[in-house]
Design a protein around this nucleic acid. Structure first.
Lengths: 336, 336
DNA sequence: TTGAAAGCGGTACCAT
DNA sequence: ATGGTACCGCTTTCAA
């Protein structure tokens, strides 16, 4: 079996207390003693049992990280960054996948609550009220979701939309479609609002083609609607929809970007790999994951500051091959 | 604070032992007592502290899941399945990302060892010896890697290669290139060996274009080599390389699949999204993740069976748009 | 069937 | 500076 603090104490001829101190507060122990302990620690390859430590300190050294769907290409990047940052801080990450189900999400959190010091909730699907109630029991940081004053990190969606629309306007586009994601999505509402507001302020005409599922199929399904809308450009709720649009446009012989320009959101890995590569609004996933951990750790340490800090991360337009100058005339829709 | 077993015991007017029993072995307590306890449990929303339980039982209810790179599109699918299965079994998953670094990997495992009941090591990068030594301390299941008799789950790479080559042969191809992945990769060696063996047995001519990094850039870099090899078809070590090939071929005006057929490996999500969609050998990621957990749990329970069970999962060719009939003449390479 | 009590491996307070 | 010791929350003998 692995060595315990007792073994170390015995072999070093000191008390458990001294061993514990040597590890936690080396300067509180005489160099002589310290060295003796350290030698034994090294010799035995002793590593304190974090579980046991957790029991007495109340701190587990573990952070719960909840995502709706780890297979969704947006999340791995965030998880990776969070993971890396946690390691730097000597923390572990307990990952939980809620399968996009609000009930599972809450259930997961409740079950794990005592195993972790706090949670980073990535784009949580639960209701505001549920989220609030969870926060009463355990420190939480929200990613990509804002609920009251709870500490959260979001991306500057409005500015992303602004950059996208400015880009299109500069290319001479006047009519742009917005393919909306799930009606229930907080982020979708944010982007939709921004499209309306910014388009108006830029003198662009924004048309909405309705809500679709935020995946490839959703994009495929909305492609014909977009065409029928006689626009020269389209902004998709996310990249998966954008990819679906590209695919369906190709199948219908609509040239991208000659006939129509496409802009996605998220900059998922696949966007750079397709042909033509998708112009997209990138959200700094790594920064998001890192800051998420940092914010949570801050809260863990400074228990006094109960007022949540709300952070906004910049987005950045990445121009690739799906955007180009507007055609003089919009492409003919099927019914024209 | 959250309720403890003491609170429940006091309110129910019984001992801690009875509460513990009510939860662990309900049939060992008088129905009367049980009901009283259960009522209080419900009333207090009591959930046993898994950390504390872990201390006394030596079981944490947590499984360590180590991946080289969660951002590698192959892994999220596996993780998701493992996650789901763990949840079904009431287990939690501690995810660790080694950043493709063997040293980090081992370090991670050592640190986490006492926090978990066992590990599932996904395509571990460490050496055979290191892996063996780890296994002395904690139950481990290997995914996509075989080390001696250690319990492991691999895919039937050879059969995947066989299916791929048979498909190409049926399309009339006679010369096929294999774009190899990292020389150090266990899986690459497996596939390379199979290519040589199976091609020979089918009367196909296999040419090797050398090792490249297993990513998009690797594919791009090898595309011209493939062309110069005057083959009509190519099998890539993995899909990312395949995607790179598609991209570079498109840039060079080489038509896929008319001029050359491409087959990838892994069936990562992006493969289905690109145009033309990539024909690929699919490995059942979900099954892999699920079985990985099951196998580990088996070992956890039946401590006697120390002989490792070695499982092989079937692979399946998914024909999409990058494979077609062989051209009568191979495309002209640059130097011809 | 039930309760008392001894750990599990640490931490931290209190003396010394 | 060091050692003794009472917990942390739960499980698990061992008696009753």
């Amino acid at each position: 079996m692995a060595a315990t603090i007792k073994d170390v104490a015995r072999l070093a001829g000191v008390s458990q207390s001294s061993v514990s101190r040597t590890l936690a507060a080396p300067d509180q122990v005489r160099p002589e003693t310290r060295e003796r302990v350290e030698r034994v620690v090294a010799q035995l390859g002793y590593h304190p049992n974090r579980i046991a430590r957790g029991l007495s300190t109340g701190r587990t050294g573990t952070i719960g990280f909840v995502v709706p769907d780890i297979a969704n290409p947006f999340f791995p990047g965030v998880v990776k960054a969070a993971q890396r940052r946690s390691r730097e801080l000597g923390l572990s990450v307990l990952l939980a996948d809620s399968d996009e189900d609000p009930a599972t999400e809450i259930d997961l959190i409740r079950t794990l609550t005592k195993q972790v010091d706090g949670f980073v909730l990535c784009a949580p699907r639960a209701s505001d009220d549920e989220l609030r109630s969870v926060c009463d029991d355990v420190p939480v940081v929200l990613l990509n979701r804002r609920v009251g004053q709870l500490p959260s990190i979001i991306f500057d969606n409005a500015d992303g939309i602004r950059q996208a629309l400015a880009h299109l306007a500069a290319l001479g586009h006047r009519r742009v479609a917005y393919v909306a994601g799930p009606r229930t999505s907080w982020v979708n509402r944010e982007r939709l609002r921004a499209v309306r507001f910014v388009a108006a302020s830029m003198g662009l005409e924004a048309v909405e083609t309705g809500n679709v599922s935020p995946d490839f199929e959703g994009g495929v399904a909305s492609a014909d609607l977009v065409l029928a809308a006689s626009v020269t450009s389209v902004i998709a709720y996310n990249d998966m929809i954008g990819l679906g649009l590209i695919s369906r446009f190709a199948a219908r012989g609509v040239k991208v970007p000659d006939d129509i320009s496409i802009i996605g959101f998220d900059d998922i890995p696949a966007s750079a790999l397709v042909t033509p590569a998708l112009t997209t609004v990138s959200q700094p996933k790594d920064q998001c994951g890192r800051v998420g951990i940092d914010l949570l750790v801050d809260r863990l340490n400074e228990r006094e500051r109960s007022g949540g800090s709300r952070t906004s991360l910049p987005t950045r337009l990445i121009v690739r091959a799906t955007t180009g100058p507007a055609r003089p005339e919009p492409p003919a829709g099927p019914g024209q």
